[in-house]
Design a protein around this nucleic acid. Structure first.
Lengths: 260, 260
DNA sequence: GTCTATATTCAGATAGAC
DNA sequence: GTCTATCTGAATATAGAC
C-alpha cells in the first residue's frame, strides 16, 4: 500500500491497461457500408418518442438524480441505481462511461437552463431600472435555482437537493462541476450587486454574496433541521415562502453599513 | 433482492444472529476475584499520560475527524482511517463498535464544549443588557462554532467542516446526531432572538434563524467556491474576518421589517 | 487491548456474446 | 444497444489467538 495520503475511496479501478473503450465510443456504431437504398432519414434514428416512454438513458438520469441527492455520490452504488431504474448494470458504462460521467451528464442537462434563466431575469432587472434594484437582482439569482427544481418538468426537487449537497462539499469533482456550470453567471451577479450598491466596497459585497450562497444552499438542501426546531412551522420546501422571507432578509444585509 | 426502495448502502452487514458482542462490552474486563492485596489505585488503570503520546483511541478519532470532514462518512473506509492512524483495523470495532459509533463518539467529544460555550456567552449577553443586544446574541451563537474549531487544541478545523457537512445532509444519522448535540441550545437562541426583537413575529424569527444556519454552515464548510470566485480575496477560513462580516450582515437582516 | 485472519457483501469497471 | 458474467479490490464486521 502506502499511497501517501491513505486510500480514501477516490478514483478506484482502471487496473489493467486494456483497450479502455473510452466511453464516447458511441457515435461510431455500424458505420460500415450502408447501401443507402432509400435514403433513411439522415442523422440519428430520430427517436420518435411515440409514447413518452422514457429511454434507458433518461431513466438512469432520473433515478440517479434522486438517489445522489438523498444519499450523496459516495452513498449510492451503481447497482442501486440500475435496480431501481430497472436497467442493466452495464448500461451506465455504455451511456455515461463512469459514475463521475453520470454526475457530469446530470449537470450538463439541468444546469444550463437555470443559469440562462438567471441571466435573463438579471437583464430584465437591468432594463427596468438603472442601477438595477437590489431586490430584483436577488430575486433573479435565487428564483431559478429554487423554482426550476420545484417544477416536475425539470426533474422535481431532486436536482435542487443534489446541487446543494455538492455546493457544501470540498471535493474536487463537485467543485469543478459547479464552477463550470455557475461561475460565469455568479460573477455577473456580483458585478450587478456592486453596481446597485455603490457605497459598499467590493470586499463587503463578496462576503455578503458568500452568505447569500450559504442561505440559498441550506434552503435547497432541506435538511429538515429547521422543521424539527419549529415543529414544522418553518418549511424551506415551500419555495414561495422561502423566497418571500429570504429576499428582504438578504437585501437588508446587503444594504447595511460596510464593516470598513 | 427486491428490498423495496433499492439497496442504497444504508446499514450494511449484521448478517447472522451471532452473539452480537455489543460493543460496550468494555468495562467488564477481569472483574473476577481480585485479592485486593495492596489496594491498587481504584478505578481504571489511570492512564498516566507520561509523554502526551496519543492513545490508539485518540489517534483514530483525530484521523477519522479529518477524513470524514474531507470526504464524507460514506466516502471514507475504515481501512483508510486505520492505515493513516497506524492502528489495527479491528481496533475501531473494539473502541467504537462500528463506523456509526465512531461518528457518534466524535460528536460526543467535541459538541458539548461548543454548546456550553454558546450558552455561557448567551447568559453573559443577557446579563449585560435586557433585552439582550442582537449583535451579542449572534456573536454568542456563531463564535464558539467557528473559533473552537480553529483552535488546534480542539482538533483544528476538521470538526468544523465535518459538522457543516452533516448539517447539510438529510441522512437520518446526521440529523439525529446534530439534533442531540445542538437542538437545545438552538431553541434557547431562537427565544433570545425573539426577545431582543419584540416587533418581529416568531415565524419571521424562525425563517431568519434558518438563513443564519445556512450562512454559518456554508462558512464552516469552506468549500472553496467564494475563494475561486474572488481570486482568494474572500476567504471564509479567516475566522475573525468571517465573524466581522457575518454578524452585521445577519443583524441587519434580523432587524428588517417583517414580511407580514 | 491488540492482533491476524476471515466472512460476506458490495464497489466500479470491462469483456464479449447477441 | 443491451445483456450476462466476471474481474479485482474494498467495504464493514467478527472470531478468536495472544
Amino acid at each position: 500500500m502506502k499511497t501517501g495520503a491513505a486510500n480514501v475511496r477516490g478514483k478506484p479501478r482502471a487496473r489493467t491497461a486494456t483497450k479502455a473503450r473510452l466511453h464516447p465510443a458511441k457515435t461510431q456504431r455500424g458505420k460500415v457500408e450502408m447501401p443507402l437504398a432509400v435514403k433513411p432519414a439522415r442523422g440519428r434514428p430520430r427517436k420518435v418518442d411515440n409514447k413518452a416512454e422514457p429511454s434507458v438513458r433518461e431513466r438512469i438520469l432520473e433515478v440517479a438524480e434522486r438517489l445522489f441527492a438523498e444519499y450523496g455520490m459516495t452513498g449510492v452504488g451503481l447497482r442501486a441505481i440500475t435496480t431501481e431504474a430497472k436497467v442493466n448494470l452495464a448500461s451506465i458504462a455504455y451511456h455515461f462511461g463512469s459514475k463521475d460521467g453520470l454526475l457530469e451528464a446530470l449537470f450538463a442537462q439541468r444546469a444550463a437552463p437555470i443559469a440562462e434563466e438567471r441571466l435573463r431575469l438579471l437583464a430584465l432587472a437591468c432594463e427596468k431600472s438603472d442601477p438595477p434594484k437590489l431586490e430584483a437582482i436577488l430575486d433573479a439569482f435565487l428564483r431559478p435555482s429554487l423554482v426550476l427544481g420545484a417544477d416536475p418538468r425539470f426533474g422535481g426537487p431532486a436536482f435542487v437537493k443534489l446541487r446543494a449537497r455538492l455546493g457544501n462539499e470540498p471535493e474536487t469533482l463537485s467543485r469543478k462541476i459547479l464552477s463550470k456550470a455557475f461561475d460565469q453567471s455568479s460573477r455577473k451577479f456580483i458585478d450587478a450587486l456592486a453596481l446597485s450598491l455603490p457605497k459598499v466596497p467590493r470586499a463587503d459585497i463578496e462576503w455578503r454574496f458568500h452568505f447569500l450562497l450559504g442561505a440559498m444552499f441550506y434552503t435547497m438542501a432541506d435538511s429538515g433541521r429547521i422543521q424539527a426546531l419549529t415543529n414544522g412551522r418553518c418549511d424551506p420546501s415551500d419555495v414561495a415562502a422561502a423566497l418571500r422571507h429570504m429576499i428582504p432578509f438578504l437585501a437588508a444585509g446587503f444594504r447595511s453599513a460596510p464593516v470598513a
